[in-house]
């Protein structure tokens, strides 16, 4: 993978562009938003397809169930609000009417994790991946940059079934290819290596990319894999990589409980036990601050990934 930064863009804008493109490709794509059209970057879709855009007001439960009702008739509804209000606030609605009823609803969740920043812990959900991946029938996607979020949005629209699509607020380096085909459930190899496998998702993929040259200088040849689909997990890719490297670091902007690391650990414990370290939030809530300050404060930054790699490589020996 070429790690050249094309530009700095927010993943939510990738969603906005992806939604517009999905709407152009398929007249059945519709969108609901609970009073966060600007934050979710859904304005272009609403402008181009006003009859297919539903402003629900601040009523997320109603939004999720209306989307399920509309999906019945062959529409492909996206719901848009912050990740906190896309999951915890409406868990029962999603569980009964979307996941259990297996409706073709796409839950688009922005401002996930601590990088939401100054608004603080009420809005910085760090439990959403766990909540969603526990639900049978639910697919969980966490793209890493603008281009990938756009492509993932288009892929989600083409996929039949419930999808949770998680992205964020800040501008981050955009490096994946513009026209990269997004394959749901297929892990993305970013760099091959032999000494350790780093599995990352979301904003922490770039943090892991930045760790690669530092590790190389230390003589550690790391493999980096972007797990953009937490569920279904690409078990084959995980085992193939770890079979080679025999030690693992996971990196995510989420609680350790219920997150990517938890999913990887389950696969390894059952199939290929090996040393593992997790870069994640460990059972605490977030707080106000800038995204960069918070990533440092909660040990989700490049130096934390480097430290975790050093530790896990030591444990292997």
């Amino acid at each position: 993978m070429d790690f050249t930064i094309q530009n700095n863009k927010d993943t939510r804008s990738g969603f906005g562009e992806g939604l517009l493109e999905a709407g152009r490709r398929n007249p059945k794509v519709v969108a609901f938003c609970a009073d966060l059209t600007g934050s979710l970057k859904m304005g272009d879709f609403a402008k181009e397809f006003p009859e297919r855009f539903f402003q629900t007001g601040i009523a997320e439960a109603n939004m999720i169930n209306m989307a399920a009702g509309m999906a019945l008739s062959g529409f492909v509804p996206f719901t848009g609000t912050f990740a906190a209000f896309s999951t915890g606030r409406v868990y029962d609605q999603i569980r009964q009417s979307v996941a259990y009823s297996n409706k073709n609803v796409k839950i688009a969740a922005s401002h996930a994790g601590v990088t939401l920043g100054e608004d603080g812990a009420t809005h910085q959900i760090l439990e959403d991946i766990g909540l969603m991946k526990m639900l049978p029938n639910m697919t969980v996607i966490v793209p890493c940059d603008f281009n990938q979020t756009k492509n993932a949005t288009i892929a989600a629209a083409e996929y039949e079934g419930p999808v949770y699509l998680r992205f964020g607020r800040p501008k981050v380096p955009n490096f994946t290819p513009v026209d990269d085909k997004f394959v749901i459930g297929k892990a993305q190899m970013l760099q091959e290596g032999t000494d350790v496998t780093i599995f990352a998702c979301g904003h922490l993929v770039w943090k892991a990319v930045q760790a690669l040259p530092i590790l190389k200088e230390m003589g550690i040849n790391a493999e980096l894999i972007n797990i953009h689909t937490i569920k279904p997990l690409d078990v084959e890719a995980v085992l193939k990589s770890v079979g080679k490297t025999r030690c693992v670091v996971t990196a995510e902007e989420h609680q350790r409980n219920g997150g990517l690391g938890d999913s990887i650990a389950q696969v390894l414990a059952l199939n290929m036990p090996c040393p593992m370290e997790m870069v994640a939030v460990n059972d605490v809530f977030g707080q106000s601050g800038t995204p960069d300050e918070l990533l440092k404060a909660y040990h989700l930054d490049t130096p934390d990934i480097v430290e975790a790699v050093k530790k896990v490589v030591d444990r292997k020996q």
Partner: peptide, 21 residues
């Protein structure tokens, strides 16, 4: 056409289905 049991959801589902029509 959809699961029910946990109360309070059916009216919203029906509104969604009505808008689809």
């Amino acid at each position: 056409r959809i699961a029910s049991g946990s109360l309070g959801q059916g009216l919203s589902v029906a509104v969604g289905a009505a808008q689809a029509k």
